[in-house]
Simulated assay, not measured.
Amino acid sequence: MTRRQLGQLEAEVLAALAAAVDPVSAAELREQIPGEPAYTTINTILFRLHAKRLVTRERQGRHYLYRLAVDQSRLVADRMRDHLRHASDLSSVLSRFVQNLTAEEEEALRAVLDKPQPRSGETA
């Protein structure tokens, strides 16, 4: 079994929660995460995500059911922005990112860039 970074596992749990229609238990989430992570690991991740207010939970019997508490697009965009803040050569990083896009991703990016976007703090 390959160990992954905590941030990666956290992202996988958040993605699984985003894909869920209804609230899910830690055991259900564990089944959706590749690599067979330990149940206790998934519980720890969920506890931390709840503390960060990224997920909500409701008690059902002895267990909790979890639901994503934030918009997934905002969550992913914030992570991308955090990574870009650490780049010493922003142009190179963005260039490499664009080179690795699929045709569908490139088309979606072009559509977004061609449409005027309000900046943070501005109203639409």
Rank of each mutant, 00 (worst) to 15 (best):
residue 1 M to R: 08
residue 4 R to K: 03
residue 5 Q to G: 11
residue 10 E to V: 01
residue 13 V to E: 00
residue 17 L to R: 03
residue 18 A to Y: 01
residue 21 V to M: 11
residue 22 D to K: 08
residue 23 P to T: 08
residue 24 V to E: 11
residue 25 S to I: 07
residue 26 A to N: 12
residue 27 A to W: 07
residue 28 E to P: 00
residue 29 L to N: 07
residue 30 R to T: 11
residue 33 I to C: 00
residue 38 A to Y: 13
residue 41 T to P: 03
residue 41 T to G: 04
residue 44 T to V: 04
residue 44 T to P: 04
residue 46 L to Y: 08
residue 46 L to I: 04
residue 49 L to C: 02
residue 51 A to I: 00
residue 53 R to K: 12
residue 53 R to P: 11
residue 55 V to F: 01
residue 59 R to I: 09
residue 61 G to V: 06
residue 61 G to A: 04
residue 66 Y to E: 02
residue 67 R to H: 14
residue 68 L to M: 09
residue 70 V to M: 03
residue 71 D to R: 08
residue 72 Q to L: 06
residue 73 S to A: 14
residue 73 S to N: 13
residue 73 S to E: 15
residue 74 R to S: 14
residue 75 L to C: 05
residue 75 L to Y: 09
residue 76 V to Q: 10
residue 77 A to C: 02
residue 78 D to H: 04
residue 82 D to F: 08
residue 85 R to A: 14
residue 86 H to Y: 13
residue 87 A to M: 07
residue 88 S to H: 15
residue 90 L to W: 08
residue 92 S to E: 15
residue 94 L to N: 10
residue 94 L to W: 04
residue 94 L to S: 08
residue 95 S to T: 14
residue 96 R to F: 03
residue 98 V to P: 06
residue 98 V to L: 05
residue 99 Q to A: 02
residue 104 E to A: 07
residue 105 E to F: 00
residue 106 E to A: 07
residue 107 E to F: 00
residue 110 R to P: 03
residue 112 V to H: 14
residue 112 V to S: 09
residue 114 D to W: 09
residue 115 K to Y: 15
residue 115 K to C: 14
residue 116 P to V: 07
residue 117 Q to A: 10
residue 119 R to Y: 10
residue 120 S to M: 10
